[in-house]
Computed example of a mutant assay.
Amino acid sequence: MTLCYSYIDSPVGRLLVAGDASALHFLSFPTGHKSFGPQPGWSPSDAPFAEVRRQIDAYFAGRLQSFSLPLHLSGSAFQVSVWRYLAGIPFGETRSYGQIAATLGRPRASRAVGAANGSNPLPIILPCHRVLGATGALTGFGGGLATKAYLLRHEGVLPAEDQSLPGLA
């Protein structure tokens, strides 16, 4: 499969987006343990990502709370069910891994929800940053905990006392 890619500047750094003419496949943060760059065979192109760019810019400007983009989700049936659930968590709200597992009818699968959350190919778009530990703790995040905290502050979940992220443009 040949994908195109582009970069979108954001308050949390330069985001890599990749997809084809019909759907967005990936979003990667510039830092964190899940960040990645363009893969072999991908072609640079800004054209397919005009609407993605518009919606990401609107999200960070506070004008958009829910994304409406065609997405390509490739994963197990359970992963896809978790990712679809993420899309329904409202802006400014959070859920725990256990809450998601229970809602999906698998109350003992909070670790599996965590693993699916960690494999989310489209963070921000499918807002995995809105998932917290059972105690409300900020748990692992592919873009780094500082990025997760920034996104939650942006959405009003955490106090807005410090909106900066050291080392991010």
Rank of each mutant, 00 (worst) to 15 (best):
F60P: 04
P38S: 12
T139W: 07
G114Y: 09
L158M: 12
S164A: 06
Y150I: 00
G32V: 06
A112K: 00
D46V: 07
L3T: 13
G41H: 06
H129I: 03
D20R: 09
G105W: 07
H129P: 07
L24D: 00
F29Q: 10
W42V: 03
S22H: 14
A102S: 05
G167E: 01
F67P: 01
R84D: 05
K148E: 03
F78P: 12
A102R: 03
K148Y: 01
G118M: 14
W83F: 13
S45P: 01
F36N: 11
G37H: 07
S68E: 15
S35Y: 05
G92L: 05
P159Y: 03
R53F: 05
L132V: 14
L69S: 03
L132P: 09
R54E: 15
Q65A: 14
A101R: 05
P11T: 09
L104M: 10
F78V: 09
H129V: 08
S35V: 07
Q39F: 07
A112D: 14
A146P: 14
F49C: 11
P11G: 10
A87F: 09
S164H: 03
G118P: 12
V80W: 04
L158G: 12
A50N: 07
P40A: 13
L132T: 05
F78Y: 15
S81K: 09
P44M: 12
R153G: 06
G88Y: 00
A18I: 03
V52S: 13
R63V: 06
P123Q: 09
I125L: 15
L16F: 09
D20V: 10
A169R: 09
R84W: 07
S10T: 15
L168P: 04
Q55S: 13
F141E: 00
A146K: 15
V12I: 15
S119L: 13
A146I: 12
L27T: 01
S66E: 06
G32D: 04
Q163V: 03
G142P: 03
V12Q: 10
I125M: 13
G142L: 04
R108Y: 12
L132E: 06
S35R: 15
L104N: 05
L27F: 02
G19H: 14
R153F: 10
G136Y: 04
A134K: 15
F49W: 11
Q99D: 14
G144S: 07
V82Y: 07
S164G: 01
E155G: 08
